[in-house]
Design a protein around this nucleic acid. Sequence first.
DNA 1: TCCGTTTGCTAGCGCTGCTAGGAACAAGAA
DNA 2: TTCTTGTTCCTAGCAGCGCTAGCAAACGGA
Lengths: 200, 200
Amino acid sequence: MTIQNRKERERAEREKLIITAARELAEAEGWEAVTTRRLAERVEYSQPVLYSHFKGKGAIMTAVALEGFAELAAELREARMAAPDPAQALARVGAAYVAFADRRPALYDAMFRQSVDLPFATPETPAALRAGFEEFTEALRPHLRAPHLAGADPGPLAETFWAALHGLATLMRGGRLPREHHDTRLTLLLACFTHQPTPR
Amino acid sequence: MTIQNRKERERAEREKLIITAARELAEAEGWEAVTTRRLAERVEYSQPVLYSHFKGKGAIMTAVALEGFAELAAELREARMAAPDPAQALARVGAAYVAFADRRPALYDAMFRQSVDLPFATPETPAALRAGFEEFTEALRPHLRAPHLAGADPGPLAETFWAALHGLATLMRGGRLPREHHDTRLTLLLACFTHQPTPR
DNA sequence: TCCGTTTGCTAGCGCTGCTAGGAACAAGAA
DNA sequence: TTCTTGTTCCTAGCAGCGCTAGCAAACGGA
């Protein structure tokens, strides 16, 4: 029994090792540099060992993405909780989101740009993923009373806010949006959603 | 002289043929199915011929993307011009943008998701690209008088609106946003930018 | 008709994700 | 302690990728 346990534990440790190595490699050199051979070399096992843990390279990326969702949710939550009022809360959540995407581009890619086969917006959606989305919903809730949002569905509204941030983050990362306007854009987006005049 | 002309013309035709074939293949089966071998087979030339026209696969995708920018700009312009008033204009431009991304996913990928080495937001930005962005700026201009946007820079505002649409389009395409809320999200986004209460 | 240039081919390099098959090792039974 | 059984994990290899070297054939001009 204990011998079986030890084996299972070692196996789990190795799986975690693979995920961490993949993530580190991706964050250091981008996903295109993460090949199964390099990854195997890094964890000091042969290539086929990866396939005894994961169905393929895509499954490894999905595992990394799952880690990312948990971290993102935690950061968003912290940002929201630390804010003194609802207006600040939305602003900080938005800023935290884009900062996360900017700080961990490879992780963000695995989560939102690559086609990972995770169920979004369904009952089987992983908890970490749902938790992140929940932060948007909560941060927006106090603003539902604004005239232009009267009677709006919280769900689609959170989706829209999230999508806007996602667009800002990805287009800026891809060099499509000038970095120097970033703060201005974030401020404008918040002004649009909260209908507070732009402070300038 | 005429013989030289004929050669140049034939060469240009072949280049166009390659671009069209790449685009068709991508639109039919996605960019991961567009390999230099399949592309060469499709245009009935050998693989190295592609490299006498383009520096590599990336350059072919860039050429396809450029076509896409021209078409997108035209569609946005048409949508804006056909609208009876400024509120409708913004709504139609937004809807046209997302519809374009949805109708031609591979083309849109080449334009905005792959790392195409085109200069954005610089003096050397291709005309087609600038024209598309111009449509956003124009469609938003009448709304700059809204209280929450008073004194806002038209440039960053257009960037923000564009980014929001981009986020909606890409997240929906990646299965991250439920399709059935799409119209609701678009309506909400417009309500946020134009200061009109959400009609429901 | 001959020569030089251009054109476009075959073949191949080093890489990718992934897998088949066998060797080595460990665990339980005699 | 020895033999058998089952697991673990490696070597080797497949098909396909983007890209290129080098040669053969076709063509244009003299």
